[in-house]
Structure formats: structure tokens, C-alpha cells
Design a protein around this nucleic acid. Structure first.
Length: 172
DNA sequence: AGAGGGATCCCA
DNA sequence: GGGATCCCTCTC
């Protein structure tokens, strides 16, 4: 759930990746820095980072205060506020299902940026998690875009959902 | 399939 | 201070 200028945008999370403590692929692996500080905070907070010159990515912290672990939110199925998401994407022709497909697109569609880094997702007025009760079949695979610890099946996605990102071969 | 993009971090 | 790296996206 995301509130922008008084409007509530809803995206149903359909794809995540886990970044574990002592995970060579995790930003936290080499210890705490200015960038990844939020990852070491208490659970259910936002860790937002910038990558590849253009993309912001949203993670939800896990584990207790002092332990660096998080789930990268890779894709959402747009549920409400679709036209606002399209405007935030800045592209007219994008199909609904692609608006928040991929971690960078997701942040753009929901207006998530550095201002959200460290937000408490249980108390923040403009960004939080909610349970809609839907329990899709969940598939898993190796994580996307990694070189280190690339063999661990820590990506989880809603099977058959067209907003799931990545090569189609990975989302049967 | 390939280039672009900029912050970050490590090792000098 | 330099250069490799990076949890990607778009256009070709």
C-alpha cells in the first residue's frame, strides 16, 4: 500500500527474493555502510537503494535489529491507482500487468525513492504492507541478476501471474 | 543482445 | 582517487 498526494495506490506483491544473513549476494555481506544501514535495523522496515544509474529498489527488512537481512520486492500486480502508476512510470503504452513488473519499475510506479529508506512499514502513513487473504501457488527459483551465491533457490513468485518479472523461462 | 546509467566500495 | 561492480531497463 502506498499513498501519493492523498491517493492510495495498491499493488499486490507477486514476486520477492530473500537475502539472508551471511549471504554473499546480499548488500549486507560486507558489513554495515551508509547505504545499507537500514538492512541492519529492526524487521519490517524499508531498505531502498539505487542501482544501475536509473533504478530504485525496495526491500523489506527481516530478522532482528542488528542482523542484515531483507526481502527484495521484485514485482507487484497493480490493483488500484493504475492511471497514477502509469503517469509515474512516464510511459503511455505500458500494459497494466507491466506497470510494476521488475524492482525498478515497481518503485517508479509506486513513487518509491530514497525518502522511503528506513520507513517503518508498520507505522508509516504512506507505505505499508497489508494482507488481502489471497494465497496463490508459490513457485521458487534461483535469484535474478546475481553472480555470487547464484545457485540458491531464494526467489519466490505467484505461479502464473503475468506481473511476475524475469525471463519467462524462469516463471513457468 | 547490447548499451546506458550513476552510486558505492575496495584497494591503492 | 580509480576502476570494477551492481538485487536493471529499454531499444534495437
Amino acid at each position: 500500500m502506498r499513498v501519493i498526494d492523498g491517493e492510495t495506490l495498491i499493488g499486490r506483491i507477486v514476486e520477492t527474493e530473500a537475502y539472508l544473513p551471511d549471504d554473499p549476494a546480499s548488500h549486507a555481506f560486507r558489513g554495515m555502510t551508509a547505504r545499507n544501514r537500514a538492512m541492519f535495523g529492526p524487521p519490517l522496515h524499508a531498505y531502498v537503494y539505487f542501482i544501475y544509474g536509473t533504478n530504485w529498489c525496495l526491500n523489506v527488512t527481516a530478522e532482528q535489529d542488528g542482523i542484515g537481512a531483507a526481502a527484495l520486492v521484485r514485482a507487484c500486480e497493480p490493483v488500484r491507482g493504475i492511471e497514477t502508476m502509469r503517469a509515474l512510470r512516464g510511459r503511455a503504452g505500458v500494459r497494466d500487468r507491466d506497470l510494476a513488473r521488475g524492482p525498478g519499475n515497481l518503485c517508479r510506479a509506486l513513487g518509491i525513492g530514497p525518502a522511503c529508506d528506513g520507513a517503518d512499514l508498520e507505522t508509516a502513513p504512506d507505505l505499508w504492507l497489508a494482507d488481502d487473504g489471497i494465497r496463490p501457488a508459490v513457485g521458487s527459483s534461483i535469484r535474478i541478476g546475481l553472480t555470487r551465491a547464484a545457485d540458491m533457490p531464494l526467489r519466490f513468485y505467484a505461479v502464473g501471474n503475468s506481473s511476475v518479472s524475469g525471463p519467462r523461462a524462469l516463471s513457468p
